[in-house]
């Protein structure tokens, strides 16, 4: 590969301060050898046009800031390699959430759903002096659950969440719900299940599995949702 290369972009642009409506901007940028990831290219683009707006922080896939729709699929810019990406690279905001500016979306509804599942350990026994014990096997039950970075790639790729973002918790929130249901230290199992017992909050998941397909951390919300459904069934019989 040559050290310098020019890359073509098509980017969703919208500044409510000056644009009557959103538009797709065609723009190209010359990359340096060190620009390996899509986020590097966006930083390079921003040096050319400082009005291009996007969120970013850790640049290593752990903070969840730079989620966007990349060539039609949700992902993190910092984990998207520039080597195997089709051009023009089409960038849009995460689908289904209100756009604030360019690829920056209003995530209020997403976090509202996350907060709705009581995303914290509930254990009303007096805290012991030392740690609560948990076997390595019980701790392993949390693997694939606690690693979520709240980037919203999953929920905003889910048709059920697009239709009912106010009623359906969505894959990220449900993954978090199961993270606490699966924790041997948590005592609020029936309260948590009650909280999801409703035609929409849990049962709008139709196992389309877009969430699994896009998760940049390789987590499986559909599987977690299936386990919650199992728990619902088990307590009903």
């Amino acid at each position: 590969m040559s050290s310098k290369r020019t890359v073509q972009f098509k980017i969703y642009r919208y500044d409510p301060d000056k644009d009557a409506a959103p538009y797709m901007q065609d723009i190209s940028v010359e990359l340096e050898e060190s620009d390996k990831k899509l986020l590097d290219a966006l930083v390079r683009l921003k040096a050319k046009d400082d009005s291009l707006s996007f969120r970013r922080s850790c640049r290593e896939g752990v903070c969840g800031s730079d989620a966007m729709n990349i060539n039609g699929k949700n992902g993190l810019a910092c984990l998207t390699s520039m080597d195997d990406i089709a051009q023009p690279i089409t960038l849009r905001p995460l689908p289904g959430l209100p756009v604030i500016r360019d690829v920056i979306v209003d995530m209020t509804q997403f976090f509202k759903q996350y907060h709705s599942i009581k995303p914290y350990l509930i254990n009303n026994e007096p805290a012991p002096e030392r740690e609560r014990l948990q076997s390595p096997e019980d701790r392993d039950e949390l693997n694939g659950l606690y690693e979520c970075i709240l980037c919203a790639c999953c929920s905003t790729s889910c048709p059920s969440f697009w239709w009912n973002p106010d009623k359906f918790v969505g894959p990220a929130g449900l993954l978090a719900a199961y993270r606490f249901l699966a924790d041997t230290r948590d005592q609020a199992t029936s309260e948590r299940l009650d909280n999801l017992e409703d035609p929409y909050r849990l049962f709008r998941c139709h196992s389309i599995m877009n969430c699994v397909d896009v998760c940049p951390k390789h987590l499986n919300p559909t599987k977690a949702i299936g386990k919650i459904k199992d728990m619902m069934v088990r307590r009903a019989v």
């Binding site: 914290y120 350990l121 805290a127 740690e131 014990l133 948990q134 606690y146 606490f180 230290r185």
Partner: peptide, 15 residues
């Protein structure tokens, strides 16, 4: 740990 932090565990269940 009491807040729910998922520490890894030793065989006897400690942090």
């Amino acid at each position: 740990e009491h807040y729910g932090m998922p520490f890894d565990r030793t065989d006897n269940g400690k942090i």
